[in-house]
Lab assay of single mutants.
Amino acid sequence: LVRYRTISKIPQITLNFVDLKGDPFLASPTSDREIIAPKIKERTHNVTEKVTQVLSLGADVLPEYKLQAPRIHRWTILHYSPFKAVWDWLILLLVIYTAVFTPYSAAFLLKETEEGPPATECGYACQPLAVVDLIVDIMFIVDILINFRTTYVNANEEVVSHPGRIAVHYFKGWFLIDMVAAIPFDLLIFGSGSEELIGLLKTARLLRLVRVARKLDRYSEYGAAVLFLLMCTFALIAHWLACIWYAIGNMEQPHMDSRIGWLHNLGDQIGKPYNSSGLGGPSIKDKYVTALYFTFSSLTSVGFGNVSPNTNSEKIFSICVMLIGSLMYASIFGNVSAIIQRLYSGTARYHTQMLRVREFIRFHQIPNPLRQRLEEYFQHAWSYTNGIDMNAVLKGFPECLQADICLHLNRSLLQHCKPFRGATKGCLRALAMKFKTTHAPPGDTLVHAGDLLTALYFISRGSIEILRGDVVVAILGKNDIFGEPLNLYARPGKSNGDVRALTYCDLHKIHR
């Protein structure tokens, strides 16, 4: 019993810090008490220290592992850092350059016999395009090294910054494609005289377009951006097909006994025919423009016929181009109408809503002055909100995010209106959640004399007048207030005048 009563005193000691020596009952000389009392004092002292730490809000209350900052290894790049964003855009520009100039170089340097010394005699450094290609190869190699040090988000939505895990993730992902696209074939085969082989191998750079397509997928929600990307894709495919079309004609031209190829026909049409040795002929500019003209006309199913396939190889390629053109029509131009419709969806919704308003007016036989006010209010409210119901949009977000959005939407009023000066951010967040926005066209009466005042109004834009009878008592403008002081009276009061809008007004109100 003594032991039980001794232990039962522990909660009292913990909360009230009572010393055991003052209790005459606990001072009985028993061996059990002498053993338990020192333990009680020690526990009391420890609990006292913990309570003191909690009340003082000291940093040592938290466990040590929670006080440590997340460790980022040296030379690790955050995937959302500004440097990584700028670097990704730079790589994107280099990939676009590669997609345009690599097929052009591979096709127009394929057994090209233009006048001038061969590239091997001039030297590697004197070729501007080769120098640019070398810079692109170096940048792609540097990009691989950067990807080995860039964080990523795993399946659990955690940012991984450990170098080993980053390397394994990159090896399992895009490393092989990036490595093949970054191989400097110019340096590996330079001086061997195989410019045709170098041009063909350099087309491996186009593998990076797969990554670019995935990154550009984030802009699919913007109709104008999608339309622009589709047109660029169409032009890029036409450019690639033009390079292939020229390569076919250029390879067949020296081996044909009869002059029936499209390059021969082009030379005869523009007065620059090929001679018996295969030299001469149109310039590279004429060849490229004509090839691009043929691919565009074939892809769009126009086909004027002034550039036509004559050999079997050219006919087979033309059939493939027609098939590609039909697929592009289905996948690209078939979506253009939907994209344009999405661009004008706001206008369509406006006309639909206006039609419903006019049908309501016609069905209920609203008189002319009231009908005009109804239409003007709808037009003004639509121009202010673009038909978007803010309350319906915010309803799907958590309250903390709703408060931040409301604070942002009402920031101008909260910053410049005098009653809100000096208020804490928590108070402003709470008030912003209570605001209701209303609009009024010129001549609209917001409050009639004798109406119950259940709200306090803040003028965000425009001006109003307060009338008693036919006498203008006051004219209020931006950041002015009218209405009933909230919670100042037990019952809502009545208006002693009319409140009429002089201009288009936007008002925020808080109800009782």
Results as ranks from 00 to 15, higher is better:
L67K: 03
H73T: 11
I77H: 01
L78I: 06
F83N: 05
K84Q: 04
W87I: 01
L90H: 03
I91P: 01
V95S: 01
Y97E: 01
T98M: 01
T98F: 01
T102E: 01
T102I: 08
Y104M: 01
S105A: 08
S105L: 01
A106Q: 15
L109N: 07
E115C: 07
E121D: 15
C126F: 01
P128W: 09
A130C: 03
D133Q: 15
L134Y: 06
I135M: 14
M139I: 03
I141E: 03
R165I: 04
A167H: 01
V168L: 14
G173M: 03
M179I: 11
A182H: 01
I183F: 09
F185V: 05
D186P: 15
G191A: 05
S192D: 09
G193H: 11
G199P: 04
A204H: 01
L206D: 01
R208M: 07
S220T: 04
Y222T: 05
L227A: 05
C232L: 08
F234I: 01
L236H: 01
W245Y: 01
G249C: 01
M256E: 15
D257I: 11
I260F: 12
L263P: 01
L263T: 01
H264L: 01
D268G: 02
Q269C: 02
Q269G: 01
Q269W: 01
I270R: 01
Y274G: 01
G278T: 01
I284S: 01
Y288G: 01
V289M: 01
A291K: 01
L292Q: 01
Y293K: 01
T295L: 05
T295C: 13
L299M: 08
T300E: 01
S301H: 15
V302S: 04
V307P: 01
V307F: 01
S308F: 01
S313H: 03
V321G: 01
M322I: 03
L323N: 01
L327Q: 02
A330L: 04
I332W: 04
A338E: 03
I339P: 01
Y344E: 05
G346S: 10
Y350S: 02
Y350N: 01
Y350H: 04
Q353N: 03
E359Q: 10
F360N: 01
I361E: 01
R362P: 02
H364P: 02
P367M: 03
E375D: 04
F378T: 13
A381K: 10
W382R: 03
W382A: 04
S383I: 09
Y384H: 14
T385A: 05
I388M: 08
M390L: 08
D404V: 02
C406Y: 08
H408A: 01
C417G: 10
K418D: 15
G426Y: 01
L428H: 04
L428Y: 04
R429K: 15
K434I: 03
F435C: 05
A440P: 07
G443K: 03
L446S: 01
A449V: 13
